[in-house]
């Protein structure tokens, strides 16, 4: 690799890193603030108790439903921003990471895939179903391996 190539890759890497960071901050700051504030109100307990039976099959707390919903409709950064004020442990971070990794930004990405001639409704339903299945499987695996 020549010095010139090195410089080009270094610049592109920095540019990509900063552009990802910028996208991330734009989403994280508003979501984090909203979720952190909700979290200190009675509403959080209400949301938590409604979703707690469903979320327990993924090994998550009821309040973490906010992170999954943010991820499904917006993107991964929104999921992270909504998750962090809840002080998750590494297992919860991993499960939310897997579930929202499979299924995120459904509205926009559904539209992109639609252009290839694939039904958007089909991919959305498929991704949500697979993400639920993945969450259940990984939670079971964690219970077997780590107790």
């Amino acid at each position: 690799m020549t010095a010139n190539e090195f410089q080009i890759h270094l610049q592109k890497g920095l540019k990509d890193g900063l552009s990802v960071s910028f996208k991330l901050i734009k989403t994280i700051i508003p979501f984090y603030i909203v979720v952190d504030i909700i979290n200190h109100t009675q509403t959080a307990n209400y949301i938590g108790s409604i979703f707690s039976p469903i979320m327990s099959i993924f090994g998550l707390t009821g309040k973490m439903s906010l992170a999954l919903i943010s991820g499904y409709t917006v993107n991964l950064y929104a999921a992270i921003a909504a998750l962090m004020p809840l002080y998750p442990n590494w297992r919860e971070v991993t499960i939310v990471g897997l579930m929202s990794g499979i299924s995120h930004n459904l509205i926009i990405e559904g539209a992109v895939l639609h252009k290839t001639g694939i039904n958007a409704f089909f991919t959305v339903v498929l991704r949500i179903a697979v993400s639920f299945a993945a969450g259940i499987i990984l939670n079971l695996l964690f219970r077997v391996v780590y107790g």
């Binding site: 700051i29 984090y32 952190d36 504030i37 921003a81 962090m84 004020p85």
Partner: peptide, 9 residues
């Protein structure tokens, strides 16, 4: 909340 969001960013 703002402090937490900035720290995370």
């Amino acid at each position: 909340a703002v402090e937490g969001s900035l720290r995370l960013s």
